[in-house]
Structure formats: C-alpha cells, structure tokens
Design a protein around this nucleic acid. Sequence first.
DNA 1: CTGTATCCGAAATGATACTG
DNA 2: CAGTATCATTTCGGATACAG
Lengths: 144, 144
Amino acid sequence: MTTEEAARVRAGQPAEREVPDGQEYDVFARLCPSRDVFAELADKWSMLILMSLLGCGPQRFSELQRGVGGVSRKMLTQSLRNLERSGLVLRTVFPETPPRVVYDLLPLGRELAELLAPVGRWTERHAGRMVAAREEFDAAHAEG
Amino acid sequence: MTTEEAARVRAGQPAEREVPDGQEYDVFARLCPSRDVFAELADKWSMLILMSLLGCGPQRFSELQRGVGGVSRKMLTQSLRNLERSGLVLRTVFPETPPRVVYDLLPLGRELAELLAPVGRWTERHAGRMVAAREEFDAAHAEG
DNA sequence: CTGTATCCGAAATGATACTG
DNA sequence: CAGTATCATTTCGGATACAG
C-alpha cells in the first residue's frame, strides 16, 4: 500500500485514499458529516477537556476550569456544550444551593479520550525537541 | 487511580493530575511550552495533513490540497510551514520548471500521525451516532 | 506549479458585568 | 457555583492578484 501509493505519487497520479467499501464517512471530504464532527473535536479545548475527564474522573465546572489551564468560562461552557450535544459528555445538575454541576465522560467520549490521551502524552514527551526544532528553523530563516 | 481521583473529586478537593517525577512538560498548564506545541497540533488542518501524509505517502503541494478537502492554499501553506518548523514534516524542493515540492513525514511526524490516524478513523466510525445525538439534543432544547 | 502579499468579512476569544 | 450576555479585540480564513 505505502509502496503502491508512493509509486502513484511519483507517477503524478492523484493520491487517492482507498475508502473501504461500505464506509460512508471520510474526514478528508469537505462535505462529509464526519468532517464537521472532526473539526469540532480537533480543537485544543475540546481535546484537553476530554483528556482531563479521562485522567481525573468526573469533575465540576470549576474543577475543570482549574484543571484545563487558561480556559475561560466562556470557552469552557461552549466546549462542554458541544461535547454534551454530540453525546460525548454527560452533564449532571445537582439541585443544591449553590448549584453543583458535574461533567463526566459517556462511553462514546471515553473511547475518544482514550485515543486522545496518547497524543497528549506524546506531545509532552517530544515538546522539547519540537521547540528546539522551531528555534533552529527560525534561526535558519532569519538572515535569508 | 480512577477510584482514588474520583474520591478526591467527591471530597471537593482539587483534581490534581499526578505528574510523574522528572516530567517537565504538562499540556494542561497554560504556561508550559508543550501547550503551545499542543495547540498547534490540535488543529483541524494540521491533523488532516499529517494523516494524509501517513495514509498516502509523500505528496506534492497540489496533491495535498486535493487530498485534504476544502483547505485553501493559504491555510495549507501555513499549516505545512508550522509542521516543517516543528520538525514533523520535511519539505523538498526539486529545482525543475515548473517547480515540484514534495512533503513527507519525518520520524517525529510519523509517530504523531500514527497516533492521530486512529482518531480520524474513530470519528468516521462514530460520526453517525454523534450527528444523531446532536439532532436529539437540538430537538430537546428547541421548545425550551 | 508553488507559493507570497494584501485586503476584508467572519468567526473565535477574552474581559467584564450580571443572574438564578 | 455555574453559568449568560455583551462588547472589544484578535485571529482565522477565503478571495484575489501577483511572482519565481
């Protein structure tokens, strides 16, 4: 496959992704519904929220805000609403005073979070190298 | 861990993430360098580009533009520059006329792409359910 | 073909004040 | 506590024209 595709690339032919028969969704297709979903999930705050819920368990609104450093109430609310709307996160309101609202992963969200967590850990492990690469790149492109 | 953390949450204590000793980077920390890196990668176009390069092999600029549906030249250029700058993607210019520029994954980028690919496939598999969940949510919140 | 430069409207985001 | 509403600002991103 890789070799075959590479050959196709070399030949100047379009690099078509083979879509398994019967698979209706393709994140690479601009008009595919899965693209909308993907665009929502491929977001800094959404990903951090899902990862935080996976790593720390159910959390209140304010706990999430402390856990996800730098997120504003507005963005936290917005992102949580999207995740709730798409069926990834459960929002539970305890009718106390003051009110307590707890967010938790639904099975669907947990599945996704378990795929995202490695991405976060990978980023932490290799951030040093990437920052260094940036500095090299910037230095090399400073004079020219 | 999950249980322990959950207990802490219930007790109203801060849901602190345990950071392994010696790990200097934390994507949840607003000021951590890894957060900048993560924010760059947790992006629709960056993720799709990496996934396309992994799935289809080395590709020219125009091939990538066709492969990643809906991306404009501007965003494609910008995202590729970022990925190149961070050491994830290699840009090779063949001095022909017209010029040919081929992008490929560097080892670092390939590692990441291999973590992202499952996220893309997961999204495609579950997009239907998420779209349905959205419709339910919207319907339930329409009347008020 | 592979970009760069510029403009401009749209969308994202932060800050702030207010509410149940 | 957990939001909502509003405004100001920034950033995103598409369109277009141009260039090597």
